[in-house]
Design a binder for these strands. Structure first.
Lengths: 235, 235
DNA sequence: ACCTGAACACCGTTCAAGT
DNA sequence: ACCTGAACACCGTTCAAGT
């Protein structure tokens, strides 16, 4: 039997890079970064550890591909109302990434620490940068402004995911925050005059709200440094 | 001989948490995060792997302590001219952290991915937050504004360190940037109309400059959303 | 109180051997 | 072309035994 004729008759459950990456995401979600093991993964795929290496070069590449899959899915979600402003679209992109990293905390560490997959960076730059362009930022500043936005979004989301991680799914958030607040309030009054006062503000804060406030802050900075050119002065 | 009498006679080369953390920083700088091994570390300290566990609970705690040591040293460096503005001081703190993470790239991954040592967070909040207070930001916004600043600084610095890492110390930066630029310029014109144009701007950019531009952007956002209360309108 | 070093249960990766 | 699974060289951590 010639190879060509058998092409379409492949076993549907055959291994493939895509199936491996999907399984890796599932394992990472269930067991965290430490839980992704070639043995655990191969068991998940009903094969041997060595089989994976036919489709993926090493663990680093696998982590990168898994990260790219999550980012791509997050950026594909946007419905994007046709009459929305660039600022609203940037908030939507940022929130989509924030929620994706919150749902897959290992992505945060991956995105902010290692250098990304070749495909991930353009994805992030494109969906953010289009709105930067629409905001009227001068062309010479596109790279700088877009990078700052992406860096803030990824950095803040990664930190949030790490904090959520240490808390655990069932622990009581209020009790935890209260403990941190008390620790801050007990710091040395001389060395930590500022942080001591922060405890109470941190106690009831909402991570998502805080993240969006940060996005708005950066957006305000963009507008302040690169005001949109309208024909005259504002009313 | 009673124990008390021998106290001051301890061998000067005895193991201690501090000596272990210092050695860990040295190993991490020389060999990266993957190079920090209890075996390599104990060889560095002329002892056995098990000895370290008397002073440090596990590898996570060791990494946290090493990170805290680097951050503390970075924040202690500032000379802080007495007539400098809050904005200038924030830039100085940000640059000190950026340079520290550039010199110890493993710190970037640690700070932006894992939840920090109890002592590291207050350190960062305090040195940044004091200037936020001096800028005249209303008290109710201290936590949000300071968090955003710290998140941007750490996120951007971590990403920069990761990028520098993939390049390696001897590789030619211009050739590398040119390669990325070419890759971007070759992307699909429909899906990546924005990123395609970015290549040329990225080619000659300076990471430190770009980082400072980001800090200024965030500072401008703070001023825009929380204008300092002066008695009247500006001239 | 502090250190030693062998031992345990793992891990990423390779590779001859199969189909 | 794709998969198997044993084998190799590692790793974090423990712990009886020493001083």
């Amino acid at each position: 039997v010639p190879q060509q004729a058998r092409r379409s008759a492949r076993r549907t459950d055959a291994l493939s890079r895509e199936r491996i990456v999907d399984a890796a995401v599932a394992v990472l979600d269930a067991a965290g970064e430490g839980g992704l093991t070639f043995r655990a993964l191969s068991e998940h795929l009903a094969t041997g550890p060595g089989a994976i290496y036919w489709h993926v070069a090493n663990k680093g590449e696998l982590l990168g591909a898994a990260t790219d899959a999550v980012v791509a899915a997050a950026l594909a979600t946007e419905p994007d109302a046709p009459d929305s402003s660039p600022q609203e679209r940037i908030r939507a992109v940022a929130l989509a990434l924030f929620d994706a990293i919150d749902a897959h905390p290992w992505v945060g560490a991956q995105l902010s620490a290692s250098s990304w997959q070749v495909t991930t960076t353009p994805r992030l730059l494109e969906s953010t940068g289009r709105q930067v362009r629409a905001m009227g930022v001068p062309r010479a500043e596109w790279f700088t402004v877009t990078s700052v936005l992406v860096q803030y979004v990824l950095g803040a989301a990664a930190q949030n995911a790490a904090n959520a991680q240490v808390l655990g799914p069932d622990a009581d958030r209020d009790t935890y925050l209260d403990g941190v607040a008390r620790a801050w309030e007990g710091l040395d009054p001389e060395d930590y005059s500022f942080t001591r006062v922060l405890g109470d503000q941190m106690r009831g804060h909402d991570d998502r709200e805080q993240f969006l406030a940060g996005v708005d802050l950066v957006l305000a900075g963009i507008t302040a440094l690169h005001p949109p050119r309208t024909g005259g002065s504002a009313p």
